[in-house]
């Protein structure tokens, strides 16, 4: 059972409270269905969907309104409903990391999270980390060390690497391996990544 009492934002419904209303004993009786139905009805005013609903996402420091069905992943909302296509759709099931974004500063797979779950949280996509005209230290370092070929996995690595540097300004090679362990590349561009991240770390300290 989740220990986090925090309710998903945008919802008046807490799973823990729902389970509490049923009670452990009720599970053994014929009351379960009735009680559960009542709970669902009570919560219904806060349940959204199954049709499209309007949500507001905080993306790269800006509020963006978007209309999505509750089943739409954050990745699909970013790519199809908005125009943040830096996060890539590759495996679409939380393996390859090409869709990595930051949620409240923590790296997360946007393919494995619903858009409605992200409401009220701070979303940072690769586009929020730098632009071609104003590259971040890590982006510059990736280019310098040629840690990319076709480039399709690169945004995910940039986001994962940024998350590492945000929390660990002095990463070791092992730290880098671990931090990038959730991302995959097919062209084989790992070689440049350790030096890219180490040198970005140095550059960031130099600039501070």
């Amino acid at each position: 059972m989740p220990t986090d009492e925090k309710k998903p934002p945008g919802s008046g419904f807490s799973r823990r409270n729902f389970l509490k209303t049923i009670g452990a004993g009720a599970a053994a009786t014929g009351l379960v269905r009735e009680v559960a139905d009542t709970a669902v009805v009570e919560a219904a005013s806060d349940v959204q969907g199954p049709g499209e609903i309007s949500i507001t996402l905080n993306i790269n420091g800006k509020s963006e309104k978007v209309s999505v069905e509750p089943r739409v992943t954050l990745l699909d909302a970013l790519r199809n409903r908005l125009d943040h296509t830096g996060s890539k759709k590759v495996c679409d099931r939380g393996t390859c990391g090409a869709c990595t974004i930051l949620i409240d500063g923590q790296p997360a797979y946007s393919c494995s999270m619903l858009a409605v779950e992200a409401e009220g949280r701070k979303i940072t996509t690769v586009e929020g980390l730098g632009t071609p005209e104003q590259l971040s230290a890590l982006q510059e370092s990736f280019i310098e060390h040629d840690a990319q070929q076709c480039g399709f996995c690169t945004p995910g690595f940039i986001v994962a690497g940024t998350a590492l540097l945000n929390t660990n300004p002095n990463p070791t090679a092992d730290d880098v391996n671990e931090a990038l362990g959730g991302n995959l590349c097919r062209c084989g561009t790992y070689s440049g990544m350790v030096p890219a991240i180490m040198e970005a770390a140095k550059a960031m300290k130099g600039g501070a």
């Binding site: 296509t85 690769v126 586009e127 730098g130 982006q139 990736f142 945004p155 940039i158």
Partner: peptide, 14 residues
């Protein structure tokens, strides 16, 4: 490199 590392590169999929 700059368009690939920043997500500005537009692939067919994008």
């Amino acid at each position: 490199g700059p368009i690939k590392t920043t997500g500005a590169a537009k692939y067919a999929y994008d």
